[in-house]
Design a protein around this nucleic acid. Structure first.
Lengths: 209, 209, 209, 209
DNA sequence: GATGAATGAGTCTTCATTCAT
DNA sequence: GATGAATGAAGACTCATTCAT
């Protein structure tokens, strides 16, 4: 008796303790990413993922109690990787003056968005921001808060008075620039002039004179 | 970048001739918008829409040959309304100096994005940008081009030299600001200081000192 | 409230009295034949036929109370045309000696099967032999009986003793030859040698050396 | 002669590995045959077959990706059984003189057509000769070729000069006789006089004096 | 733990047929 | 008589999920 539960389990069913389990989970996640990129979210089925992973559908459900939990895990992994890139270099940024700090910040964000852009795109464009699958959007919000915090640090160098408003604008701006770049003009990201220009945009708005 | 597209009929099946059928089409579209906002794209089914419209499923398919075409019609209607708002006031903007032009432009875009924001959100976040359903994304691209064209007009007033790059940045920025505002901080839009600030952001970047 | 009736009306709803009605009926039948040949029985819908006839679906149902009655009418018309060809020349055949009679008989049957072969094929191969739509198969049976009757007339010239058995064999043979010829080797029918050969086949079997 | 073909998956979806699934497949096929004979092709639905098989509709689709593939499998099985009967005894026929060869040949064909005549009838009369479902018609064509080949072997004993034409006539004749017998006068087949008579028909036409 | 056969609720969609205008 | 909008039962088919082996 199937009867799809209204409330879907999203928590991974269990933490794999042994190395073999860990490997299986990774295989499944990799396959899920591949299928997702290749077929899109709508046409991605748990059976297809299991097959692509060379794993029985039963085993897949051993580790992911629902399709949603599978995608959520993928989102989480992707987000974690992005987050890692940003957080790793964050300390260094805090102590720099405004312009180089802004420049580095933008670099970081761009790099973070450039991690597996195909997957990023599918995750952003096709996966419903529902429940735990909304993790990517949550991460974008995190970044937002991060930028705000960074602004606070550089408060003395700023021209703008309403810090909250400025933070919002700057954050939205940087986030959007990188986001759009990755999605629609990825080649832009290789161009150093692009980073200069974006830095200019931000610094001119935020900074004194 | 792949994402295999299923071929689905997206063109409305037939143009309704009688007043009665025009009313039916409108009823269906209104119901579709309601269901979409309430249940999200995934859980929106043609049967649910028909039921919500108080119309038989057959009638729905008389006018919309697929679920996709139904959503596409919704997208088109939404986009048209937004486009109307922007295009109507565009001539007036062309002849203004940079700052007031920028200010008015931002106002316009904000207003355009404030049309039925709930629907806008669902359409942007949950509807796959596939086939004719991608109309909203297309419209965002249109806006992009519009901003570029507007920049060209004001070339003489600009500080930036690489117009293409600047256009891209400015467009992404404005678009993102309004977009994010609508989605995450709609109350911002009522605040005139917000418009001032956004204008500042843009003009400082683009304009001569 | 649709509710398809279990028992389908197959009798034409009414006999058209006026010339205009007659013309409409003919238009519909012609369209039905076209659609049937072009799309096959399964994909033939009453709506499609009405459209092809340039007539509203309502008008179609004015004359044909069901899809079955429509196809049945088509079958009947086709069969009547075939029957006409055969019966017209039948008297003349009765008085001829065995060989020329057989030859003429075969000619007739071939000619009858060559009336609108495309439609004939669809009617034979795709239309279920159900209810009144089975008219074509019935006609084939009629031909069978006709051949048997003809054999009775020529009893004195025959070699065979078990007339019933011979009749069955001869009938099946002639019917099959013409039938297969029309369906799979229509070009055979233009070849006079073909008629000679078929005549030989029959006469050698039936006749006194 | 067109008849637009819809592309439908006709290949069985997967080969069952476990004994359990092999049994399921057989159960489904048996049920399909029963339903087909009882209700006819048009009224045969996948759901009805699944129900008759005591199997969920999902299981049916596990093995047969479309209604067409289900019927095609049935056709294939039926044809294979018929083919087996004929091919098995074919060598023996090649070396016999004309008359006993003809006699044996006819016996074989009759026997082949007498395998599950009810199913045979439905398959011949109601199943559209489309795609892989046309297998029965194809088999009849095979038989045709077989007869032609057999004629070639006996060329020296034949009276007829135009071998191609004679082959066509003989093939159509034998095929038709057995076919009609099975469909409309199955009791004929038990009567040895029938086989004698049919042999006579063929041999008189083909043979010397 | 793994496997994969089985499940069936739920989707989209068609089309013969009716009936208000 | 004609029109075509509306109907909804019914069909094909999918896929997340379960569970016997």
């Amino acid at each position: 008796m199937p009867v799809r539960a209204r409330r879907v389990r999203t928590q991974p069913r269990k933490a794999p303790r042994q190395a073999r389990s860990r490997a299986t989970v990774d295989t499944i996640l990799a396959a899920a990413a591949r299928v997702l990129v290749k077929d899109g979210f709508e046409r991605t089925t748990t059976n297809r993922v299991a097959e692509a992973a060379g794993v029985s559908i039963g085993s897949l459900y051993q580790y992911f109690p629902s399709k949603e939990s599978l995608v959520a895990a993928l989102v989480t992994a992707h987000v974690d990787e992005m987050r890692g890139l940003v957080l790793a270099a964050l300390e260094e940024v805090r102590v720099l003056p405004l312009r180089p700090a802004a420049r580095r910040m933008i670099e970081l964000l761009v790099a973070a968005h450039a991690v597996d852009p195909d997957l990023h795109r599918v995750l952003m464009e096709q996966v419903p921001r529902t429940g735990r699958m909304g993790g990517l959007a949550d991460f974008e919000a995190d970044l937002h808060r991060l930028i705000v915090a960074w602004l606070e640090v550089h408060r003395s160098e700023l021209r703008v008075t309403d810090l909250g408003l400025a933070a919002f604008l700057a954050a939205a701006t940087v986030e959007a620039i990188t986001h759009f770049s990755v999605l629609y003009q990825p080649e832009r990201l290789r161009d150093p002039a692009f980073l200069d220009e974006a830095t200019d945009l931000i610094v001119r708005y935020l900074g004194r004179d």
